[in-house]
Design a protein around this nucleic acid. Structure first.
Lengths: 157, 157
DNA sequence: AATCTGAATTAGAATAATTCTAAATGTTAT
DNA sequence: ATAACATTTAGAATTATTCTAATTCAGATT
């Protein structure tokens, strides 16, 4: 039987008992209750690219004592340990993204939602000249435009 | 004599009398004294990708009565009329960029400075799959790494 | 098991960037 | 000159985030 093609779409792991903690531990972080909740919420809502605030509200339903400061602390720790990325497409609340596969972000200028476009930047062919002396460690691609749902609404008018 | 190669590096226009105003007018904006000062300052400091605050400080030397709110108003107007772009590489003060040629931004993670890398994104070859139904109007490429000056300091240690 | 130690969490205060508000001023069309 | 509208202004308000200091927690050590 042939091998299945490499998966290019990010699928967040199920939040089975221990899976989230294991990932946190693998990243070299102590899996505290709060970190598990925060990371778990983020994995569950990866598509929405939630803000700290949105994560806080959701986390509270699982752990009512959690504080906003802790959500920020946990997110910072997750970012430092490469489990999560910050997304800044506009000057608005930072959004968080647990998809660490290389991908581009798309911001719908009509509804403000953010989408992941899978793929990988090819520095050689991307069309930009990196002057000598510069070391590029990360390339981020952000697109803007109109998502299918908003395009439809536009037509209806 | 052969033609000189097309210039790919953004050269801000000199701030000769009227040039800045003419650009503002061409963009469909009334060239008020404040707008001229704000746009002029930004053109003079294009390399630095200044924040509203930095523009305000500099604008004050030319027009002491100008207020912060006006700097924001002017910048908003310039952005709306496609004379200026906002740059958001991190959650920090918005930076402004009067280089409307297509280019990438590079953020030095050591010193925090932002640089322009000339070139143009080639959506076809850039390596990302745009799902059908999405309309992309703008593609922005941001790189991170170490600039030559900071790389040198690193070595010295 | 009790104790120590450093890490993590907490509530609330502080900060920073930006937006809002309402009044004053300036500009353009009549 | 006047009306109508746009722009500017100072300062208040808002928002996201960071800071602070006290408390709690987890794991290691007695």
């Amino acid at each position: 039987m042939k091998d299945v093609k490499a998966r290019t779409v990010f699928v967040p792991p199920h939040r089975e008992r221990g899976v989230v903690d294991a990932r946190i531990a693998e990243a070299g972080l102590r899996p505290t209750a709060q970190r598990s909740v925060v990371y778990g919420v983020l994995l569950d809502h990866a598509k929405e690219h939630p803000t700290a605030d949105e994560i806080f509200i959701q986390a509270k339903t699982e752990k009512p004592e959690i504080s906003m400061a802790t959500v920020y602390n946990c997110l910072d720790a997750l970012v430092k340990h490469h489990l999560v990325k910050q997304v800044h497409l506009e000057r608005a609340a930072t959004r968080y993204c647990p998809n660490m596969d290389e991908h581009a972000h798309f911001l719908c200028e009509t509804c403000g939602e953010v989408w992941d476009f899978e793929g990988a930047a090819k520095p050689r062919t991307s069309g930009f000249r990196v002057p000598s002396g510069f070391t590029v460690t990360q390339t981020e691609v952000n697109m803007r435009g109109v998502c299918p749902a908003c395009a439809e609404q536009e037509v209806a008018r």
